[in-house]
Every structure is written in structure tokens, then in C-alpha cells.
């Protein structure tokens, strides 16, 4: 394929595949049909068939990836909308985000050591529980590879959305705050979608926890990585 064709083809294919996968998800919602899982699968099969590399793909698609910056800015609006909830429930929210982030980083680090993974992989795995724009930023800062982190974040979201239902049945959770925090902290975007199905309050708490966890991780990541080494 000539360069000009690559520049036009891959972003167009990405948007088309995404729209198709989104339509499928709307018809049959579930973790298996999450567009975050299905869209890359379709595109990777296509890329393998066309012998395209990641470099070829990025030629025309990097601007789509750059939209993650403005997307981060857009999160100001849901935080603003939820300011009353934050004011009322700041203590459980703060404790939940702090404990959840600590478990995420500590479990990632300990398990990566136990499984004997390379340091580069280990650093890329640390911010996996955080929503994508924040995770990719943290990863770059702590010596991981942002595109690897993106893959791990995606898998975490899909796995978390699938595990969440099971955990809701097993754990004695009476408060909607706890149920929302479970999804927002464990499965970020995919979890928020799931939490919305459980209940409106669960959904908004999950969204809030997801954003706060992202911010908290961006804030403490540099200090954390210095202590973990």
C-alpha cells in the first residue's frame, strides 16, 4: 500500500470498525462485545492480513490517539456535575481510592516479581487499573511503555467487568457506594458501563472513583516508583 493510502486507510478503518463494534455492543451488551475488545481484534486481524506494522497504522491514526488529551480535559464536567456527591461522601471516596490504588500497584508489583516479568513490563503493568488517558501518562513517567499499558488497561477493563458480577454476589455489600467503587476502581470505563446497569447511583459513584483514581495515580506515581525502584 502506498504511504498516502495508509494515512487515509487506517484511521478510516478504525472509525468504521469502532462504529460496527459499537452497534454490536448496543444490540448485545456484555463484556465479550465491549468495543474496546472487539475493535482492536478486528483491526489486528486486518493488519495481519495486510502485513501492516504498528508504524504503518500510526502514520495516519496518531491524531486519534492525541484526542486522549482533550478527553482528559472533558472529565472536568462529570466531576463538576458530581460536586455535591464528592462533598457529602469525600471520606469513603478518598479512602476507597487510596486503598484501591495501593492494592493495584502493590499486587501488580508483587505478582510481576513472582512471575519473573521484565522490569519494563512490570512498570507498564502498575497503572493498569486506572482509566486509559491517565494510565498511559503514568506509564510513560514511571519507565513503562504507554502502548503496552494501553493493552493491559484494556484487558483489565474486560476482565474486571466480567468479574464484577461474580464479586457482587459473593461480597456482603450493602451500600451503593461500595458497589460503585468496586467497578470504578477495578474496571475503569468498562466497569462504569457495568455499574450503570446495576443502578444509577452505582454508575455515578463508579465514574467518580474512576476519575479520582486516575488523578491520584498521576499525582503519586513518581514518588511511588522511586520507593519501589
Amino acid at each position: 500500500m502506498p504511504v498516502e493510502a495508509k494515512i487515509l486507510f487506517w484511521p478510516a478503518a478504525t472509525v468504521a470498525a469502532y462504529l460496527l463494534c459499537r452497534a454490536l455492543y448496543r444490540r448485545r451488551p456484555g463484556w465479550q462485545t465491549s468495543p474496546l475488545l472487539t475493535t482492536p481484534v478486528v483491526l489486528i486481524l486486518l493488519a495481519v492480513a495486510l502485513h501492516a506494522s504498528y508504524g504503518d497504522y500510526l502514520l495516519g491514526s496518531h491524531w486519534l490517539m492525541a484526542m486522549v488529551g482533550p478527553l482528559t480535559v472533558a472529565f472536568a464536567l462529570p466531576i463538576y456535575d458530581q460536586r455535591a456527591v464528592i462533598r457529602r461522601h469525600w471520606l469513603p471516596l478518598a479512602v476507597g481510592v487510596a486503598v484501591g490504588s495501593l492494592i493495584a500497584v502493590a499486587s501488580g508489583y508483587a505478582l510481576a516479581r513472582a512471575l519473573d516479568l521484565a522490569p519494563e513490563l512490570r512498570q507498564s503493568l502498575l497503572p493498569r487499573s486506572v482509566t486509559m488517558p491517565f494510565a498511559m501518562n503514568v506509564s510513560g513517567h514511571v519507565g513503562g511503555l504507554p502502548e503496552l499499558t494501553a493493552v493491559f488497561v484494556m484487558i483489565t477493563g474486560v476482565v474486571g467487568a466480567a468479574l464484577g458480577d461474580l464479586l457482587l454476589k459473593l461480597l456482603p455489600l450493602r451500600s451503593s457506594m461500595a458497589r460503585g467503587a468496586l467497578f470504578g476502581m477495578g474496571a475503569h470505563g468498562a466497569g462504569v458501563a457495568k455499574a450503570r446497569e446495576v443502578g444509577a447511583e452505582e454508575g455515578s459513584v463508579a465514574g467518580l472513583v474512576m476519575i479520582l483514581a486516575g488523578l491520584a495515580n498521576v499525582a503519586v506515581a513518581p514518588a511511588l516508583i522511586m520507593t519501589l525502584g
Binding site: T14, V15, A17, Y18, R22, S34, P35, L36, T39, P40, L43, I44, A47, Y54, Y57, L58, S61, H62, L64, M65, M67, V68, L71, M132, M136, L145, P146, E147, L148, A150, V151, V153, M154, G189
Partner: peptide
Amino acid sequence: MLLFFVPAVMG
């Protein structure tokens, strides 16, 4: 927002 995450996953 999921659309903007796809290019990174293509890594």
C-alpha cells in the same frame, strides 16, 4: 472515548 483508546491497543 473507547474509540480514542483503540490506536494505543494496536501497539
